[in-house]
């Protein structure tokens, strides 16, 4: 924990509370990660103790298409990082370009997920395998969708003059959220597709 004695200067910032948003958001992400931790450990526990894990007729999960999805999603962490770099150099055009690219990659991931879901032989009531599979991918997908919405919001706000006079915490928080979603996906991919 840092020693955060306030200087009189930051007392003045109370009016808009802008200085606290990022702190609050980081705390929120830590808390949110516990939900995933709970789901992950539930998955591991159910899987290791199951007698027949896969529902009858299901051979296992196809992992090649999800791997492509994974590559796209993880690279979007890189593009959003680049966008932030351009933002720092005040190159708004490239910032918006890479930002939009990250959004598109996120959308591609969601599309890929939807295609995968629609081709599966099992539903979410097919035993604990089906339940946990849809719970984990669905809950994560919800986060991806939220991330895309947040990015869209930030993109629109970037056109408002004077938007960044109070700091760039919105952009920072959104990109942090996006990295978070990516890291969660990597763990999820390892758990569900690699560990079969």
């Amino acid at each position: 924990m840092t020693d955060t004695t306030l200087t009189p200067g930051s007392v003045e910032a109370h009016g808009q509370h802008s200085g606290h948003n990022l702190t609050g958001f980081i705390i929120f992400l830590c808390s949110e990660s516990v939900v995933f931790l709970a789901f992950f450990s539930g998955y591991a526990l159910l899987k290791t103790s199951a007698l027949d894990w896969l529902p009858p007729g299901v051979e296992g999960l196809e992992w090649r298409t999800p791997l492509v999805n994974t590559v796209v999603l993880v690279s979007s962490s890189g593009t959003i990082y680049l966008a932030e770099q351009f933002k720092a150099r005040d190159n708004m055009a490239l910032f918006r370009g890479f930002w939009l690219l990250s959004m598109a990659m996120g959308a591609y991931f969601l599309y890929g997920q939807a295609v995968e879901w629609s081709g599966l032989q099992f539903g979410f009531t097919s035993g604990t395998f089906g339940g946990t599979f849809y719970l984990l991918t669905g809950f994560h997908g919800l986060h991806v969708a939220t991330g895309i919405l947040l990015m869209g919001l930030m993109l629109i706000k970037s056109f408002i003059p004077g938007n960044y006079s109070g700091g760039e915490q919105g952009v920072q928080a959104t990109s942090l959220f996006w990295h978070f979603v990516d890291v969660i996906w990597i763990i999820l991919f390892l758990l569900i597709y690699v560990w079969q």
């Binding site: 808390s31 949110e32 990660s33 516990v34 939900v35 931790l37 709970a38 789901f39 539930g42 526990l45 159910l46 103790s49 199951a50 007698l51 027949d52 894990w53 979410f124 009531t125 035993g127 604990t128 395998f129 089906g130 339940g131 946990t132 719970l135």
Partner: peptide, 28 residues
């Protein structure tokens, strides 16, 4: 968050037919 996650799974077992905690469906 752990309790909330667990409660969501409980609600799905109760109302949407999953079997996370249902022994007859392989749950625990």
């Amino acid at each position: 968050p752990a309790l909330t996650g667990g409660a969501i799974m409980l609600l799905m077992d109760l109302s949407f037919g999953t079997s996370f905690y249902r022994p007859e469906g392989g749950g625990d």
